[in-house]
Amino acid sequence: MTTNNDMHIITIVTRNSLRVLQRISGLFSRYSVNIDQMSIFSGQDGLSYFSVIVYSDDHSVQKLTNQLNKIVEVCDVRIVNHKHF
């Protein structure tokens, strides 16, 4: 399933609060972007650092990150690499 799509790494910085993972993962499933790998690190600064690897097309990933940005607890979202990985 993932072979036709490019790999994207999405990094997300959020405030470390209850349900923030649910808010984020809910958007991935709503936009039909399957999470291949995810790691979360909670810093001493009260922030959580997400690194998510997905295989999807550029447009879907862009639409998804635009929505992720609207989550109140989310401070920053970046698509680290576009394809050619």
Binding site: L18, R19, Q22, R23, G26, R30, K70, V72
Partner: peptide, 14 residues
């Protein structure tokens, strides 16, 4: 209700 309304609110909290 917080879990139920995550996708249909801008923000929610318990």
């Amino acid at each position: 209700i917080v879990g139920i309304t995550i996708p249909i609110t801008k923000w929610n909290i318990q």
